[in-house]
Each structure stands twice: as C-alpha cells, then as structure tokens.
Design a protein around this nucleic acid. Sequence first.
RNA 1: CGGUGAUUAGCGCAGCUUGGUAGCGCACUUGGUUUGGGUCCAAGGGGUCGCAAGUUCGAAUCUUGCAUCACCGACCA
Length: 569
Amino acid sequence: MRTSQYLLSTLKETPASAEVISHQLMLRAGLVRHLASGLYTWLPTGLRVLKKVENIVREEMQRAGANEILMPMVQPSDLWEESGRWDDYGPELLRLNDRHQRPFVLGPTHEEVITKLVANELSSYKQLPLSLFQIQTKFRDEIRPRFGVMRGREFLMKDAYTFHLNNQCLEKTYQIMFDAYCRIFDRLGLDYRPVLADTGSIGGDASHEFHVLADSGEDDIAFSNVSNFAANVEKAEAIAPTGERATLNQEIIKVATPNVTSIEAVAKFLKVDIKSTVKTLLVCGVETEEGKTPIIALVLRGDHQLNEVKAEHLSQVASPLTFASDEQILIAAQCNAGSIGPVGLSCKIIVDRSAEHVSDFVCGANENGYHLTGVNWERDCSNYTVEDLRNVVEGDPSPCGQGNIIIKRGIEVGHIFQLGEKYAKAMGCSVLNEGGKNQTLTMGCYGIGVSRIVAAAIEQNHDKYGIKWPTAIAPFAAAIVPMNMAKSARVKETANALYEKLHQANIEVLFDDRKERPGVMFADHELMGTPLLLIIGERNLDNQQIEVKNRLSGEKSLIAIEDIMSLFT
RNA sequence: CGGUGAUUAGCGCAGCUUGGUAGCGCACUUGGUUUGGGUCCAAGGGGUCGCAAGUUCGAAUCUUGCAUCACCGACCA
C-alpha cells in the first residue's frame, strides 16, 4: 500500500473527549472515528488490526473444532419471548418494529437464534457434540458507553456455542475451548489471565473470564501471591477469619454522634479503629406471596465493601440487588441510613463472616444522631445468620488455601461458561438418545470481544510516541520510509523496487511516498506502531544498505538490500 | 437513571465577567524555502458561536428551556 492511495489520518493533538490512552491513540493514529455515543467507524488502519485479531480468533476456533456460521443481527421478538429474555433483558436490548409493526430486536447475543437453529437441524445424539461460532457485530444499548471501542454500544464479538448430550461431554468441550482461548491470547501477544468468574444470571457451574491486565481495566481481579489462583473480585470468596472471637469486655453504651453518619466519620469521631465498627445496609428481600417486599439487613465490618453479587445470590435477597428506599429504611429502623445498627432490628439480619468476628464494636443505634459502643454478638444481638458478603481485599488469605490476596485491574476480553439446559429447554432443543428417547441438550457458550481486544492491546503496548503493536496484530508488517525521495532519484528507485519486491512477496508493507520531511514520517509511523521501519537514504545507498528500525526494541541496524527478505521469515 | 463538567472552523483552545463587524495554534490550499526526527516565510479557503425562545437598537456574550458529548456510580465481550 502506498500512502498516496491510503487514508492515513493521524492527529497531532489528542481529542479532548478521549480519556484512556488506547482511545486517545486510536483516534490519533487514525484507527477509528467517533460517530455517536458508543458508535465508531473503523478506518483502514484500525480495520486491518481488527481483521488480524478476528483471523487469529477464527483460526483457533476452527482448530478447536468449531464451525463458522453467520446469524442475523436483527432477530424477531418471539424468539426472545420464547426464552423469557424479552421481559428479562431490560433496556440494554434495543427493540424496534418493522414496517408491518412486527417487533424485532438488535441482537446483543445469539443464544436464542442458535438454539432454535440447532433444535431444527439436529435430531440424533450421533451428531453431538457440535460447536458453532460466528464473528459478528453485536448491539447493546449500554447505559454508559465509554473509553472508545472498549465499551461501545456496537462492537465486534466472536460468540461460540456448543451442544452436548450430557455434562461430562460439555465439560470436556469447555476445557478444549479454555485451551483455545489461551492459545488465542498467547498468539495475540497479550499479558492475560484466565480467572474464575461469576456465572451471573445464567447460572451453571463453571465460568472463566479472560482478562488482559491493565491499570485502566474496569474489573478487580484477586490473585494469590503464591499459587496460580485468580478470580474476579465479584467471585472471590472471603474466607471466615480463623480463631476465636476476642472475648467481650465492654458494656453496651449509647453515645450521641450528632450529624455523624458515614462509618469513617463515626470511627474518627469516637476515636476507634474502623475495624471495630460495623455498618448495616438495608436491601430489599424476595417478594412474599402477599406481594410484600421484606427488608433485609446486611452487616459488614466498617472497612469492608459489600459484594453485591454475593448478596444477590442469597436466596432471601431480591435479584437484582435493590437498596431500601429512604421511606423503607425509616419504617424498618426508625431512623435514617447513617444510624442503622443490628441491635433491636426486627428484620432478617445477615452478617458477614468478618463482621461476625469482631467484639466490642460500634454500630448505629437505630436512632438519628446516636451510635452504640461496646456491642457484642449473641449478648446484644442474636437473631442473625452468617454469610460471605464482602469483597476480598489485599492481604486476605487466599481462598485456595495458599498465600494472600493481591488485587490487579483487568480488562475482560473473553468469557466462557457452561450454560446447561436453560436455553435448550426453553427453545425445545433436543435429540433422540441411544435409547430412542428425547433428551434436552446441554450447552456451553464462549465469547470474545474482538474490537475490545484492539483497545486492550494498546492499553498494554504503548509508549510516549504511540502504539507498539504486538507483531501478530500490527496493521502493517513494515513501512518503507524514503529520505528526501523528491530530490534523490536513487532513493526513489530503491524505494520503489523494494516496495514492489515486498508487495510481490505478499508482505504487508506501507510505502510512505508522501512528500514529507523525515521527522513527519517517523512520527506518524511510530504513532501507528509499525513494527519495522525500512529507512532508505543516500547515506547508506553507496553500500547498498538500508537502515532498519525496530519499533518494539528501538534497535537500529543496517542491512544489505538483497538480504531484506530475511526480515520477514 | 443520579452526580459533575462541557458544547465557538476538521482538531486543540481563547473571547463571555463589563453585549457593539468572531480570533489564535495545528491541519488544509497556493507559491517559495528546507530535507535523517513534527523546517521557515508569505498569501489564502473554511464558522447561521449545539438548538429554540426571550431581554435588547444590537446577543457567542445576559435569561429560560431543550439537545448532544464526556467523566464518576449500577451493566457487560
């Protein structure tokens, strides 16, 4: 490709709306352009990278035995009604009507379509297991798109679905997919980790997320500093403190704490360690048969954070997690949110394992402007149950039993899980088994955010000059950068000949034939992250050499023109 | 949806307090100059100042409403 025929749109200045480095560089290097919130046009350079990621994903899926298909993005609503997600999915699902006022959705995912397809196509256990995948645009009307293509509303995703007669078979395929994912991220050249994940509303047994480690990531990942344990903080168990609770030696006292509501302020005001306080959060419970919403108190140690996923999984707690309104709080505790405590509370009380381990603690008095000190479990409050409710924090013992937790940020680029029968049952997806009986299939599903990977790769690979693409996904293998081609016939001839040679050899090379000064060219190619610059100048032509600069290592070297192909083997 | 901030040329910004013919840098066009790290000089083109209403002789500037965008929280590949 010659720059004179190429849409090379680099920017010197960073657009003000771009917050994270990958978004800034994607705009500056001319990879994408913003159209509307969460919607981006991929320019030639960006599309080249996207296609490379896509191809690696495709090759590894095929190697794992999956068949590529392509499903429609626009899907009839009745499929979604059949699965129950027409009501469950919420406003993230973009719904639209066609000219006959028939309702459709823009596909955020394709479980319905594929399960229906397989229900129609398969009839015998002999056809199992079956793996299908597609690489396609998804649309999710995200509440808050951000960080460019990292969280767009429209994005490119690889979604694979596998179908099995039983769980053993599903587990086997799940492992094959797990391994395929590892190969994909290895080939992409990214620093990533598979981590244990919450299975979410879908349920099922096993689930892993694949995270690219980066400080700008939106997820917290808990690692063990000793073993290879890794889990999303949402999922990581906070194990119960060991040993006996310290013996109580204080009497319960009510103290005035005027206008002090937050737990930090209370600890400071009363001059106690925040670890000797507990906080009480009121949430909605599961609706009763009479249609009433009970209130449930969740009690955590003052310095700990509620893990909403864990709370939501409790059978008594409403899902999605809903905090009690101010009115509900007033009715349940006779006070405002800043003064609630477990003592004397009449609603169901669930105490976090760590909160249950403190003695002589401080908590709200269920009276505005007052807290209690010297409170103790059992003596002062006994009607409660104990659960794991909090987020793990750095230094906690690892749930694997080895070492302590450290926490790092990650960008979720893949998620695999065992779906079970949920969709197969709903969509009537079954085959005849060996005994000639109808048997519902069990499914797995496996996603990769292809466009997100592009952004994640940049987050992990850049310097002050621009992007440093891992070789496997660089938009071009090399750029030919001639010095003052307009003045030197020799440089021009050599550059053209070199370009023809590389082009003939199917090497993706960008020939910078602009009439620009060298500095401009260098800056642009470094911004775009081209791995190799082939610099042709009068200086080295007497020796039939050109200079090669490596973007990743920064090394410069001279190479004989005739040996140029050795760079690409 | 809640909180914060923004909206003036393709991009980055000034002008608004104190209303009076819309400006700077980059980019773009033309000519010259320079040519191994974003040269320099000159001349140009490009804006109904987010939209609407109001106040006023006069609004980018003051008032009100609306829209859009971004960031912080719940969603997720």
